[in-house]
Design a protein around this nucleic acid. Structure first.
Lengths: 228, 228
DNA sequence: GAGCGCCTTCAACAGTTTTTCAAAACTGTC
DNA sequence: GACAGTTTTGAAAAACTGTTGAAGGCGCTC
């Protein structure tokens, strides 16, 4: 659920600073230095949102914006140094989703990016309550009950459980579970999952050595039992 | 169920562009160029929401906003030219429902208008007094009692409390709470929330180190206890 | 308009909880 | 039985939270 951003600016230094910060905020980052490159990158990688400098060599940000709007439903944030009224009006007509004027703080940029992404992506599906056997898993409340007894899970345990319980019977590899639990930028030892599963079983299974909820598929991964 | 908007700006061109677009989005549109005119139009036509430029001749947007708040329960979106002014507005308890900085996109404006309308229209229906355990929270009066003892909260503390108490059990991330407390364009340090929560707990919890109202969910955020 | 006080932000630090990792013990498969 | 994959354990590392105090902004009062 990590969003991909395309940053477009002709100054390498600006790109560097923005990339670094936004990566730290959990976004996947692409960069381009010219309008042409921006269009090409958009075609190839389909980012969720483009941060577009107004002043670009060759093709102005304005033109790039128009082009993007023609062919893609990507979010666009224009970065501009000018504040004159004329620009505002033109800007309004071009169809960017938001504007930000230099100088701006990186935090503000991140905030606006999130705000536009929310709007562009529309509402995410509502979290629900899963019932599996005598387990109740409430995604919105981040809570789990076994019968009427609440079970306290750590964030990672919770995510693994939700992932598995969402599709009983489906086998997930350790890599898939790692991704589900940590996001895609995991760099971890796959076997860490084993440890989490072990802890989970202790908390939710009647008999952890003979699990009915989280079952091992030898040589493949884990699955949530579908006969409870 | 078409909503009526009153657009207030001293520049005819801006009014034109906005009117055109917003009509296309299905709103009924009124316009005014001065604060005085805005107040008069409001009195006569009772719009659902006013989009108010900060910089107006004669009477500033700020004053107009205060006047509107005195007599009407209309939604208000302030339009400001600079981020510094936006800061001010947040700091000030002006009473606008949202604010947007120039240059902005028409899409964003429309999105915010809808969002404010949703909120404003709910304003009359929703019960305004929340009772949770021995807490009484009066949203309309901005006051909170613990038992029959009034608790004095700051504006930010109050908004955080209301957000959490509105849905006991639901977990909110720090980002969501920031948003709820400061509006959509916040760009602050997430952990500022921790400080507010710490202050809140000192004021409303019997035992702040073992909170029953505002509970922390490790790695996720905070929630309002649902077993009081 | 200077001084005061309240509110908010933010960095630093300590204390806590969670996650990772490696080793050893164990189990399943052929 | 040999081999490969899995479970458990405990300790170190990392991540997260609570709290404090300082700094800055703003309104209010005198």
């Amino acid at each position: 659920m990590e969003a991909t951003l395309l940053l477009v600016d002709d100054e390498p230094k600006v790109l560097d600073v923005m990339s670094l910060f936004l990566k730290g905020e959990g976004f996947r980052i692409l960069t381009a230095r010219t309008g042409r490159e921006a269009l090409q990158m958009t075609e190839e990688h389909r980012p969720d949102l483009v941060v577009l400098d107004w002043m670009l060599p060759e093709m102005s940000g304005l033109e790039v914006c128009r082009e993007l709007r023609k062919s893609y439903s990507v979010g666009i944030i224009m970065v501009t140094a000018r504040t004159e009224e004329a620009d505002k009006i033109v800007g309004l007509e071009v169809g960017a989703d938001d504007y930000i004027t230099k100088p701006f703080s990186l935090r503000e940029l991140a905030a606006r990016i999130r705000s536009v992404l929310r709007r562009v992506q529309g509402r995410t599906e509502e979290p629900q309550v899963l019932r599996r056997g005598d387990l109740t898993i409430d995604e919105a409340k981040f809570r789990v009950w076994k019968g009427d007894q609440e079970v306290i899970l750590t964030p990672t345990e919770f995510k693994i459980l939700v992932t598995l319980a969402a599709r009983p019977g489906t086998v997930y590899s350790r890599l898939q579970l790692l991704e589900a639990a940590m996001g895609e930028s995991y760099w971890n030892y796959e076997r860490t999952i084993d440890t989490h599963v072990s802890h989970l079983r202790k908390k939710i299974e009647d008999d952890p050595s003979n699990p009915k909820y989280i079952q091992t598929v030898y040589g493949v991964g884990y699955r949530f039992g579908d006969r409870l």
